[in-house]
Lab assay of single mutants.
Amino acid sequence: KAVLCADHGEKLQLFCQEDGKVICWLCERSQEHRGHHTFLVE
């Protein structure tokens, strides 16, 4: 069962290295995470 983003309802499948947390693809494109290094997690 996928864990969903509290903000967007999308699957949490990216790890943001700068923030040390898992985010969704919409979070990654938001101003908050712009320019951060993210990695796909399974």
Rank of each mutant, 00 (worst) to 15 (best):
K1W: 01
K1Y: 11
K1L: 03
A2E: 15
A2L: 11
A2V: 13
V3S: 12
V3F: 15
V3E: 10
V3P: 02
L4N: 15
C5G: 01
C5F: 00
A6F: 08
A6P: 10
D7P: 05
D7Q: 15
H8M: 01
H8G: 01
H8I: 01
G9D: 09
G9R: 10
G9A: 10
G9H: 05
E10Y: 11
E10D: 10
K11P: 15
K11R: 10
K11M: 11
K11T: 09
K11W: 15
K11E: 14
L12R: 12
L12K: 12
L12P: 14
L12I: 06
Q13R: 08
Q13M: 05
L14V: 08
L14S: 12
L14D: 09
L14I: 12
L14P: 08
F15M: 11
C16M: 02
C16N: 05
C16E: 07
C16R: 04
Q17A: 09
Q17E: 13
Q17W: 04
Q17N: 06
Q17F: 02
E18K: 04
E18S: 05
D19R: 02
D19H: 05
G20E: 13
G20T: 08
K21N: 11
K21F: 03
V22G: 11
V22L: 14
I23M: 08
I23V: 07
I23W: 02
I23T: 02
I23H: 06
C24S: 01
W25K: 15
W25E: 12
W25M: 14
L26R: 13
L26F: 02
L26W: 07
L26V: 10
C27V: 00
C27Q: 00
E28I: 03
E28L: 05
R29T: 08
R29E: 09
R29Y: 06
S30L: 06
S30F: 02
S30I: 15
Q31H: 08
Q31A: 08
Q31R: 07
H33R: 04
R34N: 10
H36E: 04
H36A: 03
F39W: 08
F39G: 13
F39A: 15
F39P: 02
F39C: 03
F39T: 14
L40Q: 15
L40G: 13
L40F: 13
L40N: 14
L40P: 14
V41S: 10
V41T: 13
E42D: 13
